[in-house]
Design a protein around this nucleic acid. Structure first.
Lengths: 91, 91, 91, 91
DNA sequence: ACCGTGGTTAGCTTTC
DNA sequence: GAAAGCTAACCACGGT
């Protein structure tokens, strides 16, 4: 087995430590993507269930969008407030 | 507190049990969306870290895409086989 | 009829040259959309004919999908190679 | 070269006349799909060009949608008229 | 800071 | 009429 190659450039050391590092990154991302997919499926299931008992999915989505906007809005207002306070030297 | 209203149509009983049911659905979706967002952020962090040690993000994404396509392709091939069998009356 | 209006901004000159330009764009798109629709209909006819002589449409669609995926995959692989080369500073 | 196989079921005669027929159907569809794709690209190009000279693509799409609806509406009205005429015994 | 690209989501058509 | 596959709009990210 070859010892680790000393590298002073940024080329990819195929099969070496850089390759391993890269693989590790890719695997981590892939794993997280899978989890993300799982959550997306869960959400789909919920909408299907809701539809099954008579709710309108499109409307539900809209409600959530509105909720989110309100949260965002509040957050931004608070940020602005902080900014003001900083601007006038308040803690 | 009013007792549950007997309903024999499918209208939405605002404030009543249907409303509660709806809220429950929405809350569940919202919770899952938040988790999904968290994962997306994690992924972003990984790409940033990888970029920081010299890897090319665009390339990484393409590698993952290709991996995914391979998995997809295999799955589709199996489905096609099943379809063939069904089409010629096997099984 | 008014002569063409000299314009030195990018506002829309309703009824004037910009309007004509816009109409031209729209007509071209519309024409192409119609052709596209025609092709979609042709495809539908072929599937209907194939079905009429005993072929399974669903299977046919899947075969084409697989063919397409193979082409796509090859294309992506080539792109990845280019990306690799760029990433390590080649070319 | 083998003579054509007499078939009295609807199984697929791999490599025989049915296979050829199938291939022909698939090729025809594939060809049409490609043309369709070409037209879609042309449309994309036009929108890009329009955008380049300052038009708003989203608005353009909306205009076309409206136009289409009007054409549809007129067509349906005519159909209705025909129906009426038939209903009262007019030619 | 903007643009272009790629990925995600919503709407629509078509099929069973 | 439900379910799925396709298409089009939207959005967010990375690059310039």
């Amino acid at each position: 087995m070859p010892s680790a190659v000393e590298k002073d450039d940024d080329t990819i050391d195929v099969g070496g430590v850089a390759g391993k590092r890269l693989k590790s990154f890719l695997d981590r991302v892939e794993r997280l993507e899978e989890e993300k997919k799982g959550l997306a499926d869960d959400i789909k299931d919920i909408y299907a269930e809701a539809k099954g008992v008579g709710f309108d999915v499109k409307t539900m989505r809209k409600i959530l969008k509105l909720r989110k906007m309100e949260v965002e809005k509040r957050r931004e207002e608070e940020e602005l407030l902080e900014l003001y306070k900083a601007a006038i030297g308040l803690e």
